[in-house]
Design a protein around this nucleic acid. Structure first.
Lengths: 179, 179
DNA sequence: TATTGTTATACTCTATAACTATA
DNA sequence: TATAGTTATAGAGTATAACAATA
């Protein structure tokens, strides 16, 4: 179980300990500069968003982290593992156990193309398509919640800012590729 | 090594495969609805931001993930492990090995208060203070980069939105606490 | 030589449940 | 009984390096 202290407190660095507990730990925690740092809140927000999506998707047969993988295969039938790992910003070796699991459970198929017998072409099975539909429905609901929270006006701006952060924080190596 | 495909492509779902590779995998990946979903970009942005901070903090003696822990102890000397775990949105058991490591390396001290001998009161050692200063400098630089990317006007709005997401996506249990 | 995917391995982060020592 | 922190354990997620098969 996790509990997250509410972060409502004075904006400056003043500590407002209530000193009621026996151990004399501050009841109100001082977050200092954390309070104003983008990076920290980016972490909390990503965490909260993922948890909410997971709640939405509870009861579905795969973990929510598989969603992007399934969607990318569904959208790009025949994609190779290497291309998929790049699209998802993960190393190809991280993908091996994931795809093994999805194949074992008959959600994807892997075909050796005769043109290049080192590689695989990935595609969803009908069961995989159904699974993806379920997850997509959850994601849609979740995203609608986020819309409601953010507001339709704000949403575009917010998304643009997120994309900007990704684009500009990638290590400069000439082509926008993270190495 | 990770490579992330640039995500510049047509906004609708049309696939624009160049079919130049032998394996016939699409050269341009179709991200479908992912392209417009907040949750996905929140993940990418948080990832990019953390990586950038890690680059900033390379060479420092602790991993960047320790930063929040050290800062919270520094700001709240005498805080208990339970209070710390709550403030950082982690289970207390996750904290044990972290604090053991920090204590072994003499960055924090743990004192048994006579008032409650079950608990610890955590505080930084002088070395811990120095370490925190270093990390804070890195975080400040990093956050200035983010400011430059986001823009000073946008920044406040963006931060407010992040906080709003955290506040509203916490499971409803009456008091803003995540259970 | 270079690339695709696998293997072996390891590290970080995180959690649950049961435990101990206090309270 | 309840709480603070630890232990035992496990799982997800991720990475690097070396490798075999193929190009």
């Amino acid at each position: 179980m996790i509990e997250l202290d509410g972060m409502v407190r004075e904006t400056n660095g003043t500590k407002a300990a209530r000193t009621t507990t026996a151990a004399e730990t501050p009841t109100v925690v001082d977050y200092g500069p954390l309070e104003e740092w983008i990076g920290f809140h980016l972490r909390l927000a990503q965490n909260a968003s993922f948890q909410a999506f997971a709640r939405e998707a509870r009861g579905i047969d795969v973990s929510p982290g598989r969603f992007a993988t399934l969607l990318l295969i569904g959208r790009n039938p025949g994609i190779s593992q290497t291309a998929l790992s790049r699209a998802n910003a993960r190393d190809k070796s991280s993908l091996t156990p994931v795809l093994e699991d999805l194949e074992r459970r008959k959600y994807i198929r892997r075909v050796r193309p005769k043109s290049d017998r080192r590689s695989y072409r990935l595609m969803l099975t009908p069961a995989g398509e159904r699974l993806l539909k379920q997850l997509t429905a959850c994601a849609t609901t979740h995203d609608r919640n986020l819309d409601r929270i953010i507001g339709p006006r704000e949403r575009e701006r917010f998304l643009r800012t997120l994309k900007k952060i990704v684009a500009e924080l990638a290590p400069a190596n000439g082509n926008g590729t993270v190495k």
